[in-house]
């Protein structure tokens, strides 16, 4: 989204093409959100299976929204944004997953709370 002006008008094919991307992104997001709600609330699957499915649906929606609304894709123009987002997610995984891992490991040795996990 680094270009704020186009020399084409709203009747151009380029505009319609771009619009289609928003519509697709929106439609898919709605479907994925509702699917998540149905799976989490419906009780069709077991809790842990449902947990994994809604997690995957969320990741899918994340990718779709980056593509549809924030224009992150494989084109040359979007390359810097793509690398930036990918690097950020590496750091996020290191930090957030690392935090959860370290804290769960600590909890397992200190008899904290619900988990009651056993240590190594």
């Amino acid at each position: 989204m680094s270009h704020i002006n186009s020399d084409k008008g709203m009747d151009s094919g380029e505009y319609k093409h771009a619009m289609a991307r928003y519509v697709w992104g929106f439609a898919l997001s709605v479907v994925l959100t509702l699917a998540g709600v149905v799976i989490a609330g419906g009780g069709v699957f077991g809790a842990s299976l449902a947990w994994s499915i809604v997690g995957i649906l969320a990741i899918a929606q994340l990718v779709i929204q980056f593509w549809a609304f924030m224009h992150v894709d494989l084109s040359q123009d979007a390359r810097p944004d793509l690398y930036l987002v990918m690097f950020t997610f590496v750091i996020i995984i290191l930090m957030a997953a690392g935090t959860v891992w370290v804290l769960a490991d600590l909890a397992s040795r200190m008899g904290m709370g619900a988990g009651g996990m056993t240590g190594m």
């Binding site: 959100t33 809790a47 809604v54 924030m70």
Partner: peptide, 24 residues
């Protein structure tokens, strides 16, 4: 706009982690 889109992306993660996984 970017800020707003990013907030919706963050909300996907929040909605899933807090509410969907919460009721599970």
């Amino acid at each position: 706009g970017l800020f707003w889109h990013m907030l919706d992306i963050v909300w996907i993660a929040l909605f899933t982690k807090v509410y969907l996984m919460g009721v599970l």
